[in-house]
Design a protein around this nucleic acid. Structure first.
Length: 420
RNA sequence: GGGGAGAUACCCGAGUGGCCAAAGGGGAUUGACUGUAAAUCAAUUGCGGAAUGCUUCCGAGGUUCGAAUCCUCGUCUCCCCA
């Protein structure tokens, strides 16, 4: 008996260690171990909660960090409960925001939710994923019940939150309904009897509010696991679509690969830890080699890119993406795949094509003013030859099949569709 | 309910009657350098086949030869008092 329980202890400790990779914090400190032990004792899977705000339906690497963590739980036999915040989206999570979020319409929410669920399947196990909409329970509360719930929290508590505090301090508007957000999210935990809630650090207040509310309503408080926010490709701000510094998990392997290659060096470690399964001591070794100059940092980054692309696309596409990247960026060759664009719309009555108009037609410049600037700055080339002047205007036929390049990385193959 | 402050380009923010297409910073784009990293330097950043051209400073009117700047009304926000 004694030996048995020690063995279990070891197993739990091993599992916990694995689950803690890349984790920022667990509250309470040994909450994870306790919950795992509870699961063993009661012979039931833990319920791991993750709330989603159905606002931006695309899943990028930053968000995948949490999902991959959930997947680890699933692989250990636990149950993941995804909560689509259709009701809370009516509020708009103020977390990390410096402004009130626009409220979404019911249709938008529904559409976003569907795309979400599809994408979740790329990382999570279907059988161990329960998807719930929080309108299911929040929608049933009547005003008296909301008031009763609201009595569990004080304004001072809510205003402790950094984002509210900052906005308050900066004299920016905070709508009353935003204050209800943490409460609603906390109630979700009660409704689904969460054992553990995952979230980014910006969710600290909301998740801890869940613990308080569960306790007050006679449930065992959930443990909180905080994932760090993955920095974006710029290496400074968090990854997000609106900042344009993201890598989507459904993106084309070649695009994904080259995006990762443009990552800041300082962020490499974080990416290795959070986005790959490369053992931590190996990561340390790779990074050490790159700083001492034994390995070109570029090649360590290639390894990183390859690991990540493999997770979402498989081995062969990953290797192919690497080859393509080396071919284009190291050997300076033209990429294999590039968008083919017709340029008939840019052909003048005289049968010539003015470069600036061409750039606009093909979508490489937003207006001829910008196009003119690009050409003048020497950013535009045709078949590898720099366009000499913004007034360059060749015969239409000369451009058919040529490669138009703008800046360092935007290529288009020109194609004439019809004769005029 | 009373009093005060404010709304300027992607963001922050100067400008308080002509010298304003609007300082400065951030961001972004382009070039040099490089490992398509970072850092650094330089240019560009309302539109425009470019012109002493066109449309801008929350919205609608008004004053004026002339308005981002002054007046009126409206919308939104913040602060203080109750």
């Amino acid at each position: 008996m004694q030996a048995n329980s020690t063995e279990e202890d070891l197993e739990i400790r091993a599992q916990a260690e694995q689950l803690k990779r890349g984790i920022q914090a667990v509250v309470p400190e040994n909450g994870l171990e306790d919950k795992l032990a509870l699961s063993k004792r009661e012979k039931r899977p833990l319920r791991i909660k993750l709330g989603l705000d159905p606002t931006a339906p695309d899943i990028h690497l930053g968000f995948a960090v949490v999902l991959r963590k959930l997947r680890q739980f699933q692989d250990m036999g636990h149950q993941v409960v995804i909560i689509i915040g259709d009701y809370t989206a009516l509020i708009g999570d103020p977390s990390g925001r410096s402004a009130t979020r626009p409220m979404l319409s019911a249709e938008e929410i529904k559409k976003n939710a569907e795309t979400y669920v599809d994408q979740l399947a790329r990382i999570l196990q279907r059988e161990r994923t329960e998807v719930r909409f929080n309108g299911e329970w929040l929608g049933k509360l009547d005003f008296a019940e909301v008031v009763k719930l609201a009595a569990h929290m004080t304004v001072a508590q809510v205003l402790q939150r950094d984002d509210f505090a900052n906005r308050f301090g900066a004299h920016q508007p905070i709508s009353l309904h935003e204050l209800l957000y943490p409460l609603a999210q906390a109630y979700d935990s009660v409704a689904i009897r969460a054992d553990i809630e995952m979230g980014g650090q910006d969710q600290t207040f909301n998740i801890l509010a869940g613990r308080d509310l569960q306790r007050e309503m006679g449930q065992a408080p959930q443990a909180a696991m905080f994932m760090p926010l993955l920095v974006g490709l710029d290496g400074h701000k968090k990854m997000s679509k609106s900042l344009g510094n993201y890598v989507g998990i459904s993106e084309d392997p070649v695009v994904m690969f080259s995006k990762i290659m443009s990552l800041s060096d300082e962020a490499m470690k974080e990416y290795f830890v959070l986005c790959t399964d490369v053992p931590l001591d190996e990561v340390e070794m790779l990074l050490a080699e790159s700083t001492t100059g034994r390995t070109n940092p570029r090649d360590v980054k290639r390894r990183l890119a390859k690991e990540i692309v493999t997770i979402y696309h498989g081995d062969a596409p990953s290797v192919a993406a690497d080859d393509e990247w080396m071919r284009v960026h190291s050997a300076g060759e033209v990429p294999q795949d590039m968008p083919v664009m017709g340029y008939d719309a840019a052909i003048s009555k005289a049968g010539t094509v003015w470069v600036c108009k061409l750039l606009v037609t093909v979508g490489l410049a937003t207006g001829t003013g910008e196009a003119r600037r690009l050409v003048q700055q020497g950013a535009v080339s045709v078949n590898g030859e720099k366009v000499p002047s913004s007034e360059w205007e060749p015969q239409a036929g000369e451009l058919d099949g040529t490669v138009l390049k703008v800046g360092a990385k935007r290529y288009v193959k020109l194609q004439r569709n019809s004769q005029h």
